[in-house]
Amino acid sequence: MAETEKIEKIHKTEAEWRELLTPEQFHVTREKGTEAPFTGALLNNHEEGVYHCAACNAPLFTSDKKFESGSGWPSFWLPVSAEAIEAHEDNTLGMKRVEVTCARCGAHLGHLFPDGPRPTGMRYCINSASLGFSKQ
C-alpha cells in the first residue's frame, strides 16, 4: 500500500456490529474483551494463508509471520503493513500495555509486547475471536 493511500474507515452502530458478529466476537472486538488463553480456534492453525479482521475482513497478518509464543493466543511478529493496525496506550488492569486495533474498523485485536522473535522483536498477541483466516 502506498504511503499516500488512506484506509477507508468503516463505522457501524452497536446494533449493526451485533448483527454481524457472534457474541464472543462482539465482546472481544467491540467491548475490548479477551478470550481465555489456549482456547482460540486459530491458536494452533499452521496452514498457509492470511489472517483478517473478523469484523471487517481487512487483511492483518500472514501465516509466515506467525510464531509459537506459548502465551495462549495466536502471535505474530509483523502485520501485513504498518497501515493495517493501530496501536494505542492501554492502562487498564493496572498495567501499561499497547492495545492493537484494526485500522479499518477499530476492532480490538489484542496487545503488542516487545518480547517477540527477530527480526522485529515484537509479539502481536491477538485473540482468535477477532480474526478470520483464508487459506492460500
Results as ranks from 00 to 15, higher is better:
E89P: 03
I7N: 12
E68F: 10
I126D: 00
Q136L: 06
A58F: 09
E5C: 14
K96G: 11
A58T: 01
T13V: 09
G70L: 09
K96E: 10
E47P: 06
L43C: 08
A54G: 03
E24I: 07
Q25R: 11
E8V: 10
V80Q: 05
F113T: 05
I85L: 04
G132V: 08
P74L: 04
A2Q: 11
E14Y: 01
V98K: 01
N91R: 09
C56M: 09
K66G: 00
T101H: 06
R123K: 13
N45K: 06
F61C: 02
F67I: 07
T92S: 15
R104T: 06
S128N: 00
K135I: 09
G49P: 07
T29S: 09
L43S: 03
F26V: 13
V100W: 01
I126T: 04
C53N: 03
Y124Q: 01
E14P: 07
W73R: 00
K135Y: 06
T120N: 07
G70F: 09
F38H: 05
V28Y: 03
L21M: 14
C56Q: 05
L21E: 09
G49Y: 05
E86T: 15
E31I: 13
F38Y: 15
A84M: 09
K66F: 05
N45S: 11
H88L: 13
R104F: 05
M122E: 13
T92V: 14
A103P: 04
L78V: 10
P119C: 05
A107V: 04
G40S: 12
P114W: 08
E8D: 12
L78M: 13
E3Y: 03
P114I: 06
L20W: 10
E14C: 11
K6S: 14
D115T: 02
F67P: 05
I85E: 00
H88P: 02
C105Q: 06
R30A: 11
V98I: 14
V28S: 02
K9V: 13
E35A: 10
E86S: 11
G33C: 12
F61Q: 07
V98C: 07
H27T: 13
F113H: 01
Q25L: 08
K32T: 13
E16M: 10
N91A: 14
F38L: 01
S130H: 09
S81C: 03
E16L: 12
K66E: 09
S75L: 12
A103D: 00
